[in-house]
Design a protein around this nucleic acid. Structure first.
Lengths: 230, 230
DNA sequence: GCGTTCAGAATTGTATACAGTTTAGAATGC
DNA sequence: GCATTCTAAACTGTATACAATTCTGAACGC
């Protein structure tokens, strides 16, 4: 009956993807029977997966009323970005002390390799993937699994917003001065130079800039998608 | 059948408490049938609660083999403490900008009120409660729910270690010079003075000191309790 | 002894049934 | 009309049953 990979984890991954892709509208109640039919599983494993997503902050739960998609308020978005700052700046501090030169060089190679693609990629999802991968790899250099876990959760919950943000940024990408260093490069160079202060400042500035852009993007997304409750 | 508070959440809270109290030995396999009997619920709600705990990092799960208590390696403890630094220092930065003077004063009053108790309390759990409450309230001053959620999860997972640490500290408490400011007071005073640098430095030093003590405590706990696998 | 094989016992995985609660909408009174 | 009450349908909460897998330990060959 159960295969190599369990049904719960498959359902969990699908739900996570659905949540990140906004398959559920904010505040929408989730119908277990219908969803279980759609995912080809019974309610038992579905509810186990849903409970995991509640614990991770994707969904909420009300007793006897069921599971709800979490509403996306501007405050919540801001909280997520601030938590990202907390995780990524501390990870950077640790990486300055711990990361091997070779590891930093590898990430630099990845950055160089993807940067050309990044500029030309029309697909915002591809760009988002590269962006997330860079940040995840950067945090991984700290060697701290908890920070890595935290960033993964934050990224997943923030993905839809970042997608909107990146789409908008793409339209303006041509305006970037060619010789100018990308924010990612600046961060990585500071790390390579073991300059914790500069690295942290670059990271802080980078995320803050993206948060501001995302806030604007959220404002637009809100007006296009739905009206939040508060 | 279902009451005001759901069975799942009751089971969840009990399991969380059990995990924090080390009712499960690290790497121990959790027998669902037995546990469900003990908690007075069937396996269905039990497994829903267990899945939440997996998502939060208390337990691990292997397909077709079930749930396991997470093993407590020194590396894991260190990761948790470093994550605490990330969360608490960033929260402090935000609080310096955002917290009202009155809120800071309230927390100061709490600190003053508990500090006397703290010195004389024989019960290490009472001291741990006061310590956790202070840190949670401090993070709450930042107004960021995600950081609050993150600290709660970290605290719960680290609780047993902190308890051991506080027990040892209690034995040496008499050596503290009476006029000396407590670490908590130093942090709060820096916050009240809106000095982000000083507040962060104080927090960093405080947690780092506790981490070192906890590492030592863990070393002792390890040798007393069990032999970890790596 | 020591590794292998193989029942059967124990345990997990999930579908299903049904109890209990909430929700929606019709019927009613004003 | 509009609020209220009531009834049926829809949905959630959980116990249970049984299939699939893993585990245990005894029997066996070497």
């Amino acid at each position: 009956m159960a295969k190599q990979e369990s049904n719960v984890s498959r359902v969990y991954e699908e739900l996570r993807q659905m949540a990140a892709d906004f398959a559920f509208m904010p505040d929408q109640r989730i119908n277990e029977s219908e969803l279980s039919k759609r995912l080809g599983a019974s309610r038992t494993p579905l509810r186990e997966a849903l409970n995991q997503l509640v614990a991770e902050g994707f969904l909420t739960f009300q007793n006897n009323r069921g599971f709800f998609c979490r509403s996306l308020t501007p405050k919540y978005i801001q909280d997520l970005y601030e938590a990202r700052v907390a995780v990524e700046t501390e990870a950077l501090r640790l990486s300055v002390r711990r990361a091997e030169d070779s590891e930093i060089a590898e990430l630099g190679a990845y950055l160089e390799q993807t940067e050309a693609e990044y500029e030309t990629a029309d697909d915002p999802e591809a760009r988002l993937g590269m962006d997330e991968t860079f940040h995840m790899r950067l945090v991984r250099l700290s060697g701290n699994s908890e920070l890595e876990r935290a960033l993964r959760s934050l990224n997943d919950r923030i993905r839809y917003i970042r997608l909107i943000d990146l789409k908008r940024m793409h339209d303006k990408a041509a305006t970037r001065v060619p010789g100018e260093l990308s924010a990612h490069s600046r961060i990585l160079m500071a790390l390579a130079g073991r300059d914790a202060e500069a690295a942290e400042a670059a990271m802080r500035g980078h995320i803050e800039k993206r948060r501001e852009a995302a806030t604007e993007a959220v404002r637009i997304a809100f007006s296009q998608l739905y009206v939040p409750h508060d």
